[in-house]
Structure formats: structure tokens, C-alpha cells
Design a protein around this nucleic acid. Structure first.
Lengths: 173, 173
DNA sequence: GATAATTGTTATCCAATATATCAAATGCCG
DNA sequence: CGGCATTTGATATATTGGATAACAATTATC
């Protein structure tokens, strides 16, 4: 995203510049007042989440992995021998939606479904060689580019405190 | 959500209880290992955001307001005389999507569009009487039920620290 | 006055999320 | 054993949020 827009073919008419260089400064007319909005935790939470996901996508772009896909690969690596329902439930993904997600990963040869010998209903999920390799590269990108940047912004202790509180909310709220 | 499921009409067959009371304990087979996932800020961020939005919806359910709608009302109250583009931009909503959102609020008589006298292209947005009343009630519900619960979970200082870091991420990341 | 830009709008499109339903397989209990 | 409920993966489908393209009306700019 934020890539092409209308700048496709007939990009030959910057006759008059758009009057707004839109460099960095306040682009709005006079900067609206957020008011109580800045005290709404959910608002900042959502805004921050969008930013973090966007940065994640950028950092791991060469591997073409979304946050959700990355989380699946991580879980498969750490939990061998599990079936689709178990992995999906752990990630809060509904089973029907997890099917097409796995189709995508499997078609890229990042993971594989194998029929269980015990329970022939279920599919045991496993990373492929390529899946392990991609995951390893992704981990490095995330650590060196993504999480490093967050560390820089918040400081190690700030980042840890943030993570604790978020996990607590996700767990106990 | 999480309301009815299949328990609609023919809810007369608890012949054998589902074998899992599903009270509170670890429902999963043996609790998967999250591994590096618990260190991924984006993961906890998303999970926490979902929980917070869900609670917001519950708390403000009697008024039938989503977080996004609430944020619009807040912004309109604090920034009179603005047009659709300005409000939408401030909230990170794309103008085309903001149209139907406003249609919803306007059809419920919570806000109104008025053609500007200066610029007859733009619609000046304003809360109606009912809009102000609903916003006032919503604020009370959010403060007493929603944010109060977060305060209880994190403590006032924790909540403030969390808000600061989230705002910083949303602003500078 | 001609051309570009802006505003609100419509029409789409895509992704994420949610429910209902199904066939195959398994568990349970008399 | 035999029947019934449950589970698993899958399909179809609906809803929602978010994104782009295009348009008419209006305004800005040269």
C-alpha cells in the first residue's frame, strides 16, 4: 500500500505544483482538537496497532508475510504435531477462515498438512524446509528492523512495560 | 457477538452434557506454546485492541455506538464548523467511507450536515441536540464502566504510562 | 476565462471476520 | 454392536472495514 495511486501512465502534467509540498508539517487546515479522544485508550490502541502492523509489513516485505502469517509460522515451529483447530484457536482465528489462510501458506510451500494416523479427521501441520528458512529470515528482519525500532522509540524498559500491560489486557480484561 | 449461536429454536436437547463445562480452565488440549509470539509487540497490541473494543461495545451497548461512531461524535462536539474531509482525515477515515458512516449518524438524528455558505462544496457538520445528549450519556458510560475497568486493571499510573507509549507510537513510529 | 484542484458522493474491490452447513471420522453409551 | 452426538476440515455466504477510481458541482489559480 501507499505505493502507486494514480501515478501510472499519464504522469506528465505537474504543470502547477500542488501548492502544498506536504513535507512533514501539519497538513490540516488548523489542526483539529482531539479532546477526550486522546484519553480514550481504545483510540490510541487502535492507532498504534495500525502503525505497528504497517511497519511490520514494510520490514518483512521481501518475504511477503503478513503479521498473521508470521504468527502461524511461529506457532507451527514451536508446536509440532498440532492440527488446524488447535493452531487456529490459539491465534483467535476461526476454523473456516483458517482454511484459506493455510491454502496460501501451503501453496507457497511454507507448510504442509498431513493426515493424522490417530485421528483421520485432523490435519497435522508442519513447517516445510522452506517454511523454516523463511521463518528464520523473517525473525531476523523483525528483530533487526521492526522490534529494534520500537526499542529505540520506547527504550528497552518502556517496551517491556508496554508488552506486559498489553498482555495483561489481552489476558485478563 | 458471542450471543446466540445455534441456540435458537430447537434448544431442547441437552441429553448428554457437552463433557466440557468450559468453566475457565485451559480449554485446549494441552495449551500451545506461544514462544516468540509473546514477545511480538504487534501481536499483543492486536489482541489487547480487540479486547478493549469488545468491552467498549458492551459498555456502551445501550446507546448502540461503535468506537468509531463515538470518536466522530467526540470530534464533532469539540470541533464545530468543520466539514467532512477535515473530520474524516483527523480520524484516519477515508472520505468515501465516511459518507455512509455519516449517513448512519444523521439518520439517527445524532448529527447534521449543513451546506457551508463560504464554500458550497463542503458540508459543515454539527451535533444535534440528541447527538449531544447521546454523547453525554456515552461519555458517562465509557468513564464509569470502560475506562474505570482499565484503571482497575493497570492502576492509574500504569494506564497513563500505557496511554503515553501508545500515543507516542501512533505519533512517531 | 481556461485549467487544475477540492468536496462530497457513488460504485467497486479486497481483506478480515462471522455464521450455517456438510461429509467424514470419531467418541460415547446403552 | 449400533445409534447418536461431537469433532474436524471444508464450503458457501454474509457483513464489515478499508481502499481506489471516477464523477458532478464548486472553487482556486493563472
Amino acid at each position: 500500500m501507499t505505493v502507486s495511486k494514480t501515478a501510472g501512465v499519464e504522469a506528465a502534467k505537474p504543470a502547477r505544483p500542488p501548492r502544498k509540498e506536504n513535507g512533514e508539517g501539519p497538513d490540516e487546515v488548523s489542526a483539529l482538537q482531539l479532546g477526550e479522544l486522546s484519553e480514550l485508550l481504545g483510540y490510541s490502541l487502535k492507532r498504534a496497532q495500525l502503525k505497528v502492523f504497517e511497519d511490520f509489513l514494510n520490514c518483512v516485505a521481501p518475504l511477503q508475510l503478513t503479521p498473521a502469517q508470521f504468527s502461524v509460522l511461529l506457532l507451527l515451529d514451536r508446536n509440532p504435531g498440532r492440527n488446524q483447530t488447535e493452531i487456529a484457536n490459539t491465534l483467535g482465528i476461526l476454523r473456516p477462515n483458517f482454511v484459506s489462510m493455510l491454502d496460501g501458506l501451503e501453496s507457497r510451500d511454507l507448510c504442509a498438512r498431513m493426515r493424522s494416523t490417530n485421528d483421520r479427521r485432523s490435519h497435522i501441520l508442519a513447517l516445510t524446509e522452506k517454511g523454516r528458512a523463511v521463518l528464520a529470515r523473517a525473525k531476523k528482519l523483525v528483530a533487526s528492523k521492526h522490534e529494534a525500532r520500537l526499542n529505540e522509540l520506547l527504550g528497552p524498559e518502556g517496551r517491556a512495560a508496554l508488552l506486559d500491560m498489553l498482555a495483561k489486557i489481552a489476558r485478563e480484561f
